[in-house]
Computed example of a mutant assay.
Amino acid sequence: MLSSPAVNLWTIRDALAADRRAALRRLADLGYRGIEPFEALDDPAGLRATAEDLGLAICSAHSHRFFGADRDAALEAVATLGAGLAIVGTGLPDDAFTGRAALARTADSLNALAGRAAGYGLRIGYHNYWAEFASRIDGRHALEVLADLVDPEIFFEIDCYWAALGGADVPAVVERLGERVPALHLKDGPVTEGAPHVALGRGAMPTARILAAAQAGALHIVEMHTSEGDVFAELAESRAYLESAAARR
């Protein structure tokens, strides 16, 4: 089943909490094909059953608990979801990107996790925020230095908005990393810390250039942390933008 475009479920967390099936049905009705859970351990079997019943694929899954006592439970949850791609978004030390020594420790942690994940049939990916790009080592973004240190099977889910907030030329980063970026988190807005997000195409993000720079087949995952409007209306507009962008390529 095709799983792009997709929505990271943090975007509709309030609607999910109120009525999960109804919220997911609205995404399917908007034409989204996939979803990305923000915490794999939250009822993976139930979520997968509901998603499949509605014709939605689970393209990938985040967990905040890949490091520590819950590691294997989190990996098993991603496997239960049927996602194949397990995404690290949090759980690393605060100084994980502050210098070469810290990056070496970060790479060791991710490599060890990737080795464990392989036993569950999973690949490990890393999702950035802004610090990974704001921090520079010998003139390079720390995240790009990390890419040289981790095992090549580890991939990157580039959150384009956070990367821009960290000072990155996002299309250039996506192009340089190439096939290491099989998934994009797409947000839009004024690229100002704390500002609410808007539908794709309505903010300052160079989304069209990012999409053109990405590898063919990369997952397009829409995410909004905050919105001043109706989040489903914003998602509908974002879906239309992606459809139009695809038609132009």
Rank of each mutant, 00 (worst) to 15 (best):
M1F: 12
L2V: 12
S4G: 11
A6E: 00
V7A: 12
V7F: 12
D14A: 12
A15P: 03
A15D: 15
R21N: 06
A22Q: 14
A23E: 01
L24W: 10
L24T: 11
A28T: 08
A28C: 07
A28N: 10
D29V: 06
Y32I: 11
E36Y: 13
E36L: 13
E36T: 13
F38H: 09
E39K: 00
L41G: 14
E52R: 13
E52N: 10
C59R: 15
S63R: 08
F67L: 04
F67C: 03
F67S: 03
G68P: 09
V78E: 04
A83H: 02
L85D: 02
A86N: 02
V88H: 01
L92W: 06
G99C: 01
R105H: 11
A107R: 01
A112I: 13
A114D: 15
Y120P: 07
Y120E: 13
L122C: 14
L122W: 14
R123Y: 00
Y126Q: 00
W130C: 03
F133S: 09
A134L: 10
S135Q: 14
I137H: 10
D138Y: 05
G139M: 06
H141A: 14
A142C: 00
L146D: 04
L146P: 08
D151G: 02
P152W: 00
I154F: 05
F155A: 13
E157A: 04
A163H: 08
L165N: 07
A168W: 05
A168I: 02
D169C: 00
E175H: 15
L177C: 03
P182S: 12
D188R: 10
G189H: 14
P190Q: 06
E193Y: 07
G194A: 04
P196Y: 07
A199C: 09
G201Y: 08
G203F: 01
P206Y: 15
A213C: 03
L219C: 12
H220L: 14
E223S: 10
E234I: 06
L235P: 11
Y241M: 02
S244A: 15
R249H: 11
